[in-house]
Amino acid sequence: MSWTIIQQSIPVFVQAFWLTLKLSFYGIIGAIIVGLIASFLRYFKVPVLRQISAAYTEISRNTPLLIQLFFIYYAFPEIGIKISATAAGISGLIFLGGSYMAEAIYGGLQGVAKIQVESGLAIGLSRGQLARYVVFPQGLTLSVPAIAANVIFLIKETSIFTVIAIPELTNTALDQIGLYYHTDESLFVLVIAYAIILIPLSLALTWLERRARRGSFGN
């Protein structure tokens, strides 16, 4: 392994690093929005839309991101929907992540103690008010560790974007290997790059989980 080669490749990787972060960011924000909508539909038992969102959740969770991406990027143009690789990547990540976020958020809502719901009812809150003042504030807090775990998961999934040739970290490493045969160096930098992103997040997740176990409200 040569340090010179590593140093020379740093600028390309830095670019890829930011791209990975940017794509992850959009995908995760989108996924959280989809997840919030889906879990609200489920919580409020909205007819029809709730069934649609349940079907979406099953499809999204039980198929691989790679196939979802292939479908969006290669198959959709054949029925007249053409989007760029980047847009396809972000859409795929949102499609996949939305269902994971929905499960995390809904799990949090379900985790709100029954007595909390009952005491809300006991002071005359309507279902909507109960959701707004009691269930959602507490439930969303409870779902934070699961959301954080999904954030890590989704960032890792961006490595699959390489199959539609988005120049994120993994794709860049493969490029370096293909062009210059710098296999060891490229893989080394690749692992380090993911570690830089994911180790702090993973530590934060451990901390969040520990805090959640202690009961963040401590009522």
Binding site: I115, S119, F217, N219
Partner: peptide, 12 residues
């Protein structure tokens, strides 16, 4: 009005 056995204040 009702008050329960478990402390049921809204922690948030």
């Amino acid at each position: 009005g009702m008050v329960f056995q478990s402390y049921d204040l809204f922690p948030n």
